[in-house]
Design a protein around this nucleic acid. Structure first.
Lengths: 125, 125
DNA sequence: CAGTATCCTTATGGATACTG
DNA sequence: CAGTATCCATAAGGATACTG
């Protein structure tokens, strides 16, 4: 969880905090995006595409996303074992939201960059 | 930052990670939402509305949001000092996105809850 | 009022090695 | 292959006290 964790006044004050905890916690967007973009994939493929994540952390996040119903995990009892991850319908329902976010980004990330530059110029060190 | 921090393969793999770091890092949604909902406010008012945040952390997040150009800070040199925070035009441009998020939440949070319940029932302990 | 400063606890994630 | 287990470093955040 990245925002407020346990329910409290912040949740009361901000109705979207619960969703943010589910959808935008660490590594969830790269995982969901990769799964949505490249389709059903095995653990190693995800590991390779999201190159900077360690197996331990990747497993943790995949379990969380599976528990939240955003992805599905299919285990094939073979040797060697094969596990496939796929985005669920619920997970796919986030696509328009992510597109909205991408649109905001391309329209406004430049302004954020400029604001940062100006701020740093005004308040040195 | 809550997602991937420094630029790396995850950013390459997921185009929305940079925005997520800016907009959905810890405490930012409660702050932006409160500012957008109740308008221009002083430090104490924010502190009271977002009851679980400490002054140290609130200051940190306000500085970050100010640097990113999402809010403005106005200092009135009086005794006692008065400081007012207000959402900027750039910050306000996030409103439709937040509304989109709220819509997704009301439509799908129930499914997430159910998925969690089912998962926990299947895999006890 | 609007923060800072300091100390401290905890959570998160990385590195590495190992297993069914 | 698909993870687990273990240990460790870092940093994010809380509690508390203090200041211009």
């Amino acid at each position: 969880m990245q925002t407020t964790g346990t329910p409290g006044a912040a949740e009361v004050a901000c109705p979207i905090s619960p969703v943010v905890d589910i959808v935008f916690s660490r590594w969830t967007t790269p995982i969901l995006w990769t799964l949505n973009e490249f389709g059903r994939q095995r653990f190693v493929e995800l590991e390779r595409r999201i190159a900077t994540v360690t197996p331990k952390v990747l497993t943790q996040r995949l379990r969380q996303l599976e528990r939240d119903g955003l992805i599905t995990r299919t285990y094939h009892p073979e040797v060697p074992p094969r596990v496939e991850y796929e985005i669920s319908d619920l997970g796919r329902s986030l696509a328009p939201l992510f597109a909205h976010l991408a649109t905001w980004a391309s329209a406004n990330l430049g302004s954020v960059e400029r604001a940062r530059h100006d701020y740093d110029a005004r308040a040195p060190r």
